[in-house]
């Protein structure tokens, strides 16, 4: 099986619809494009090569002759001196120019109507005002207080935030406040509190014992007790009383 058949089979497996599409090329190219294209490419490459060669030659020449690629007029350096002198000669002095334009002004040019105090230029020493340099303290108490106040505010905000944000911290603070409250209580208050608590505890005990007794007590009549006692031999009763008596003595001790 050649590659074409393999590709077609693969395509049919993936999508029979695409495999059945016509495989013709819808695009068109200009007539004789490929025939002419070779010469176009070769001429392009040659042109590129030629440019590269020219660049190389120019570069070498510039190194060897130490020339620049900027253009200069012919014999520029030879004629430069003469051109410069001609330029200087053409520039007129101020007096020459003024004599041409207004000859009457030349005599007035040197006369100055303004006067200055005698010896002004000799005595006039320009006093430069001594500059007051403002010493800037790097460490200032005023600033320190400001920063401290700012830090306190930030700290307070932070603590408040922590208290409100973290739910776990609340009970700790609460318990701490309870402790503080208990610390503020007087001794009498504490005694009263403990007595009250004890009474409450006793009441609870009584309630508990009453409850138990009510469950445990059985109504016994005299007859029943007599029957029960008659069932017990005298000797046994005597021993029991004696034992109870010993027991009572032990408890009294």
């Amino acid at each position: 099986m050649n590659s074409n058949q393999t590709i077609l089979l693969e395509l049919k497996q993936i999508s029979p619809a695409v495999a059945n599409l016509p495989k013709t090329n819808p695009f068109s190219v200009p007539l004789n494009y490929f025939e002419n294209n070779i010469s176009t490419i070769i001429s392009l490459i040659k042109g590129k090569d030629l440019t590269q060669q020219n660049d190389t030659v120019n570069f070498n020449v510039s190194i060897e002759k130490n020339e620049t690629f900027f253009e200069l007029p012919k014999d520029y350096f030879e004629t430069f001196g003469i051109q410069l002198m001609n330029k200087i000669h053409t520039i007129q002095s101020v007096d020459d120019e003024l004599s041409e334009m207004a000859p009457g002004l030349i005599s007035l040019r040197t006369k100055n109507p303004f006067t200055i105090p005698n010896g002004y230029f000799d005595t006039n020493v320009i006093e430069t005002p001594s500059r007051k340099t403002n010493l800037v303290k790097v460490f200032q108490m005023k600033n320190l207080i400001r920063y401290a106040a700012a830090a306190c505010i930030v700290g307070l905000i932070g603590i408040t935030y922590m208290i409100t944000k973290e739910g776990d911290s609340t009970p700790i603070v609460a318990s701490t406040s309870n402790n503080q409250q208990s610390a503020e209580l007087s001794l009498d208050d504490m005694v009263i509190y403990l007595e009250q608590m004890e009474e409450i505890g006793h009441d609870n005990d009584l309630e508990f014992s009453n409850g138990d007794e009510s469950n445990l007590l059985v109504d016994l009549t005299k007859e029943t007790i007599e029957e029960m006692l008659n069932g017990i031999p005298y000797k046994g009763i005597k021993e029991f009383i004696e034992d109870e008596g010993i027991m009572l003595e032990k408890t009294n001790n």
Binding site: N25, F27, F34, N37, I38, I42, I45
Partner: peptide
Amino acid sequence: FTLIVKKYQERVYW
């Protein structure tokens, strides 16, 4: 190079 271009230009072009 001309022969290389001639041989492969159409496939490359498409």
